[in-house]
Design a protein around this nucleic acid. Structure first.
Lengths: 247, 247
DNA sequence: AACACCCTCTCAATGGACGAGAGACCGTCG
DNA sequence: CGACGGTCTCTCGTCCATTGAGAGGGTGTT
């Protein structure tokens, strides 16, 4: 198309532009967008201009660009997990009210957990997960549940790459992982203490639909102490409620 | 570009494809996408294919297409209203727990209300609003609040077009609207009974940031009876809390 | 078997997208 | 002040990605 052939569709470039925006830096200059997306500044400027026209991006008075309302609207109104979220919300609220701290709903996407919803108390322990945020499967209790009840080849894929370590407590060897998954299946829940953060414990249970398939993980993050495990019954009850609501 | 000139950017076509998906019909065939977006089937097929490759759309085993996880992820992780939603969530939960039925957070977008979040009880009265759904300003209590405290020209723009009517109680004349807005400003809250649905009452209050600017509306939908107005203090308290959290 | 869909591939033609460069603008520093 | 480094957008010639028609293969219904 230009002097230098690229062999790439113009739609890909637009997606690269959209991918430049993160939770940490939701507002970028055009130059910054160009840098992150690896596009020529003029190209980035043009694409950003078009996306702004369509409302997928928005432009602030200081000329910085951010994800637009329309983008959020299009993605949210027809989100693939809308029915799951709707079914889960009341139970997530109850769980949060009873257990406090963080209550979360997560699903499997690719070989990672993605968090659909999170309710947090103001004085809660630290939590690195965010809504629409991802974590490696072996780092989070939700991920352990999804792995334990997921397709067998999933574990193989996860083990095909080195297990990223975040804290000294992180599972790092295949044997540890397989043993931990076996324990999850035996217990019916996953309890990870200090795997994300030294002072936090994550507890997750599977959410099953009417067919008994595990479609999500319901979890809480609480302080790492002896009472942590007492959240399990509330989690199990919530997961059953969600499953029933899924119809 | 082809035999027939269009004068339209190819990115526009991709956006048209994305806009084909709605909350009512989140899964479409390629032909249906083509019909809704006004594109040639071959073109729709190609664009859908590309969007699926990038994860913005997903394809089910039955070949129908739906909005993809990645689309939701990109839109949600850097959503323009993320900080507002995060600040509001705890108060929305409390409000919902106390008042029951529906508790909602909405902002102004264009000349419409768009709902950012909604917590609903299982046995709640009907409610037509959805998350990422829109309503005309004069139809919802949230819209009335946003109009009452919004820029003056907003009311003019709304009145420039005929006021759509949903139920016999809907405000339909400019005089009614201006009087109602004046009342909202006097009272500090908007109470709409039977404007969305005969048996439902909507009550909304403004959410102000540290500068005193109205940035959102906090509202509840409750059964239309004498106790409805008793939700006002809880709403006002919640709105103040959200404003303080916005920092 | 005929029909009515559906989807994707191929194809030639062409117009929209490309990157370089220039110009406009801003704020800062010496 | 003027030079400078930074931003962003516009123009422009080149040219390849994009386009719609049509074909071909598939599926499900009549």
């Amino acid at each position: 198309m230009p002097r230098v052939a690229t062999g790439e569709s113009s739609l890909s470039r637009a997606v690269r532009v959209l991918e430049a925006f993160t939770a940490e830096e939701p507002a970028l200059s055009v130059s910054e967008v160009a840098r992150r997306s690896g596009l020529h500044v003029a190209t980035a400027s043009r694409i950003v201009g078009q996306l702004v026209e369509h409302g997928l991006l928005g432009r602030a008075p200081d000329r910085t660009v951010h994800v637009g309302m329309r983008m959020w609207e299009l993605a949210s109104r027809a989100a693939p997990t809308r029915s799951l979220r709707d079914a889960a919300m009341p139970f997530l609220e109850d769980l949060h009210a009873v257990v406090g701290h963080h209550a979360q709903l997560a699903v499997l996407d690719g070989d990672e957990v993605i968090f659909l919803e999170r309710l947090s108390a103001r004085d809660a322990v630290v939590n690195y997960s965010r809504i629409a945020g991802r974590l490696p499967l072996h780092i989070s209790s939700s991920g352990m549940v999804l792995m334990a009840y997921g397709p067998p080849e999933l574990v193989d894929r996860v083990l095909a790459r080195p297990l990223e370590s975040r804290t000294p407590a992180t599972i790092t060897t295949p044997d540890q992982l397989r043993a931990a998954l076996e324990q999850v299946r035996r217990q019916g829940y996953a309890l990870l203490t200090g795997h994300v953060h030294p002072d936090a414990a994550g507890i997750a249970v599977p959410v099953r639909n009417a067919l008994g398939e595990v479609v999500a993980a319901l979890s809480v993050i609480v302080p790492h102490d002896a009472r942590a495990v007492s959240a399990v019954p509330a989690l199990l009850a919530g997961a059953r409620g969600i499953g029933r609501s899924l119809g």
